[in-house]
Design a protein around this nucleic acid. Sequence first.
DNA 1: CTACGAACTAGAGCCGTCTCTAGGTCAAGA
DNA 2: TCTTGACCTAGAGACGGCTCTAGTTCGTAG
Lengths: 129, 129
Amino acid sequence: MGLSIGQVAERTGLSVHALRFYEKEGILAHQVHRGPGGRRVYTQQDIDWLKMCIMLRMSGMPVPEIRRYTDLVRQGDGNELQRLDILKEHQQRVAQQMVQLQECMDLITHKVGIYQDYVNSIAARAVGQ
Amino acid sequence: MGLSIGQVAERTGLSVHALRFYEKEGILAHQVHRGPGGRRVYTQQDIDWLKMCIMLRMSGMPVPEIRRYTDLVRQGDGNELQRLDILKEHQQRVAQQMVQLQECMDLITHKVGIYQDYVNSIAARAVGQ
DNA sequence: CTACGAACTAGAGCCGTCTCTAGGTCAAGA
DNA sequence: TCTTGACCTAGAGACGGCTCTAGTTCGTAG
């Protein structure tokens, strides 16, 4: 039930490089255990945490902020309010992003519609000839 | 009815640097007119185009792809199908992004809920003392 | 034995997107 | 005349986030 870095890369979609990078950047909640030969052995917990990190990254949280959050978690009970603040702030940003993305989507869809109509009309004319 | 680069920066939210950068990267549909002293003079058209570029950038279209699109527009009529392809492809990517972002949002909201409840329960206990 | 594949570390390199610097021009106001 | 501020160009620099390299060390299979 311990996974190698390669297996974790497969399961998470991160590269082996990225996994080591994340570790070096200190965004893993718990120190990765080492097996024989100094090889990393990941637990399911590690993977779960990584998956959360992936979500945070995907939604644009910078690595240093993930580290801040991770540090709080590592420190243990008592700082839940600070963790909450980080999450709420990020939630705000994501909400904003979604609004913006929707605006972009509207514009693009509008333009696609126009071009589609135009292209169709050309095609129709060609057929009609 | 001609705007300086500074005014355009103000109106678009882009920096003066970014405006020059975009121009150098060839993502302005029409060559920016120059006034006395070689200074850029932007038209409303330029600004409209820039605003579209901003939308495309915001939604993650890389500069080189905006350039591809811009080149097609500059070339004039006849390549609408290609333009449509670029837009549709990007539309797809944006749609995907929105789904992902929603997933992230769900996770974050879930976590915020949990922490909020916890923090509230602590606060209630404190008051209850 | 040898060779292979997967892992290790430290650190360099890369890509995209700006952002800033240096050195200069120009017009208007004090 | 001097200063100020907005602009110009070309090119260097910054930054985030990986990605890759070099040189090793293992364990297992042929």
